[in-house]
Structures are given as C-alpha cells and as structure tokens.
C-alpha cells in the first residue's frame, strides 16, 4: 500500500483534448495509525484498574471520655442476636439467649456468611420485633451484637457489617471483648490454631 494512492487515469478521457490537472486522491493509508491506536488501547486497558474501590464508613464509640456518657440500661438478652465470628467463615449465633443462660449451649447454632446469615438475621429481627414493643423513640427493639474473635478475619467483619447494611439493621454493636461465659460457651472454637 502506498502512502498516497494515485487515482488511476482520472484525466485521460476519450478525446477530451483538454489537459486537466491530475487529480490526486486524498486517501491516506491509515494502517500505521490504527496500529498505534490499538497498541495504546491495549496498553491502557491493561494498565488501568477499572473497578474503583468503594468504602464503607465505620464509626466507633468514643473510648476516651466516658464520664459524660448517658447511662443506658443494659441490653436485654431477649432482644439481642449475638453473632460470634469464628474460624473458617463460620458464624455462631445466639438468638435471644444470653451466653450465661442454661439454654445457651443448646441454642448456639452455626451458620455461614452470605445468604444463610441473612436469613438468620431476618428471621430473628422479625421474631424479636414482633414480640417486643418499639422503644419510646420509635426504634425497633432488635439489636445485633457482633463479636469478632481472634480467629476471624477482616473479611468476616466487613461481611457482617455489610450484612447489617443489607438487612437494614440499624442498631448493631461491634464488641471486641468476650465475656467469660461466652468464652466458656465457645470453648476451643475461638482458640487460634498455631
């Protein structure tokens, strides 16, 4: 392919007589340009990160000044769904039962992240919201207490927080410390293995 092609025999009509200026075709060979274009496209496609990361905001209660904190009454176990984040993406949960209750051992159940956990939260929220009246501010009585353990991962925590957003559970608490009865209840499920 020539860079600029001549138009073949444009001005040699039959017996025209007149001498015309040879018409030059304006067609430009674009192959190198296209080559370069696609090379650049390939480069930019490979070099870009397409999915821009999103972020979820996390606000934690202030630790430093607890003197002016308003006194709140302790949560009633019957209104609380407690999630313990265990190893290997297991979630142990207590639905409306306190860990120091006699029934705790029998009612401790295991579920998985994702759809299973979502169903558990929905079922529990429905049951607790139906059984208890709304408080004076009009909030639902249902509270989720999230207890990460030493064997759980960061992903687990994000998953649970995400689940809170999905199920629209407004009242949840991330509690880092386990009580003695909870430790006893979970036993070696939460002991790191190495």
């Amino acid at each position: 392919m020539a860079a600029i092609e001549e138009s073949g025999g444009g001005g040699h009509g039959k017996g025209d007589g007149k001498v015309r200026a040879k018409k030059m075709s304006t067609r430009v060979d674009m192959t190198p340009m296209v080559d370069l274009g696609f090379l650049l496209i390939t480069f930019f496609m490979l070099a870009t990160t397409m999915s821009k990361p999103t972020s979820m905001t996390l606000a934690v209660p202030d630790k430093t000044d607890d003197q002016d904190q308003e006194k709140t009454e302790p949560l009633k176990a019957s209104k609380v769904l407690t999630l313990f984040m265990g190893a290997n993406d297991d979630v142990y949960y207590l639905d409306g039962v306190a860990a120091d209750d006699d029934k705790a051992e029998a009612s401790l159940k295991t579920t998985r992240y994702g759809f299973d956990l979502r169903s558990v939260i929905f079922a529990s929220a429905k049951r607790i919201n139906a059984a208890n009246p709304k408080d004076e501010k009009g909030n639902d009585p249902f509270v989720v207490v999230i207890k990460p353990t030493a064997v759980s991962t960061y992903k687990n925590m994000v998953d649970v927080l995400d689940e809170m957003a999905i199920t629209k559970s407004k009242r949840y608490a991330l509690v880092e410390t386990l009580t003695d009865s909870e430790k006893k209840l979970l036993g070696d499920k939460i002991v790191p293995k190495n």
Binding site: P53, S55, L58, A59, P61, D62, T64, L161
Partner: peptide, 11 residues
C-alpha cells in the same frame, strides 16, 4: 480520638 473512618472495599 479518631472514631470515624472509611473501610476500603471492592464493590
């Protein structure tokens, strides 16, 4: 006293 932050996640 930093109590609010963003957790970077994928979408």
């Amino acid at each position: 006293n930093i109590n609010k932050f963003n957790l970077i996640t994928g979408s």
